[in-house]
Nucleic acid binder design. Structure first.
Length: 327
DNA sequence: CACTTGACCTGTCCGC
DNA sequence: TGCGGACAGGTCAAGT
């Protein structure tokens, strides 16, 4: 469920914490979480300095520079249940990270912390780390650590050259960023309704795929997942089952606007916590509680017209919509 | 070729 | 209490 807003919130936190830091160690506890680790990264990552943290679609990207000056990108995809949690060095007081049983040590005291410098906030949803879902741990020279937790082991790390062919391929595969300044209804139309070659007489084959399936396709638009597809379609008053090819210009305008508004609103709320999403400090996001209108609310009444929201399946995903005001 | 479905995983929730 | 099964959904391979 980490989608664009969740990954964006995590990246902002990591940027503050990691830029300028130098990696001192990498522990891969589950091999599938960093498939190529042994071949390429085992001796390469320690010594690398973090020069930036970016997001592309649902990917978090740690930009690294190795001692020889070569630039690398460490890609992290959280998939369903991945978490990236940063823990500052707690004045070396947190010895073995495993020890709720110990009493003598002033307990895992939580230094109120206004930011990363002092540790982590007491309202963190995540306890002592590593825990049983920890897959990768990256240590830094100042003794802080970045934990990659992932219950379902769908997420992964991948190290690529910043300017290599792999990078080009991965960038060009993803569709445009809906929050980039250049994103508007015309761009959305070009992605949803690509101008097919029109043979005179034989009109181009209109895409029959549902608008929801298209929104979930990362090659069409980058970063939209199930939550924001449903929320945007509701805000734009569009039936998720409609063929993408059938949207009119006014409908495309509503949808483009709804996508931007819903995604930005969620970033402002700290993202959506449906199951186990937390930000870089272990804090949950509040979008679902504060501003979501349909996701997870099947059977409840439509906040716009009062009709009962329907839960169904579109594009293989659980989908909630209002049968009365979405057309 | 366009599109849909199944597999990958594990934790949670529900009914029996 | 314990167990089986459905369900959650991002992405890719396989199927229609």
């Amino acid at each position: 469920m980490p989608e664009l807003p969740e990954v964006e919130v995590i990246c902002r936190g990591l940027r503050q914490a990691l830029v300028g830091q130098t990696i001192s160690s990498v522990d891969v506890l589950v091999a599938r979480s960093f498939p190529a680790y042994n071949e390429q990264a085992v001796g390469l990552l320690p010594g690398c300095r973090v020069t930036g943290v970016k997001r592309r679609g649902k990917l978090a990207i740690l930009e690294l520079k190795d001692p020889s000056g070569q630039d690398w990108c460490l890609l992290v995809h959280l998939r369903m249940t991945g978490q990236l949690i940063y823990r500052a060095n707690l004045a070396a007081s947190s010895g073995p990270a495993e020890g709720p049983a110990d009493a003598p040590a002033d307990a895992p005291e939580q230094p109120s912390a206004g930011g990363f410098a002092g540790g982590y906030p007491s309202q963190s949803l995540v306890g002592a780390l590593p825990d049983k879902s920890t897959r990768v741990v990256i240590g830094f020279e100042d003794q802080s650590r970045l934990f990659f937790n992932d219950q379902r082991k769908f997420g992964y790390f991948k190290l690529i050259l910043a300017s290599g062919l792999e990078h080009e391929e991965f960038v060009s595969k993803l569709g445009p960023e809906p929050l980039d300044p250049g994103f508007d209804w015309r761009l959305l139309r070009s992605r949803l309704q690509p101008a097919g070659r029109q043979k005179p007489g034989q009109g181009q084959r209109a895409s029959e795929a549902s608008i929801k399936a298209k929104l979930l396709d990362q090659q069409v638009i980058a970063g939209v997942g199930n939550i924001y597809a449903d929320e945007s379609l509701f805000a734009a008053r569009l039936d998720p089952r409609r063929p993408a090819s059938s949207l009119t210009v006014p409908e495309l305008k509503r949808l483009a606007e709804a996508l931007c508004e819903r995604l930005q609103r969620s970033i402002d709320d700290g993202g959506s916590t449906a199951r186990n999403y937390v930000d870089a400090l272990g804090l949950r996001g509040e979008f679902l509680d504060l501003h979501a209108q349909v996701y997870g609310r099947g059977g409840q009444s439509c906040p716009r017209c009062g009709q009962t929201l329907q839960k169904t399946r579109v594009a293989g995903r659980g989908t909630v919509y209002c049968p009365k005001c979405q057309h």
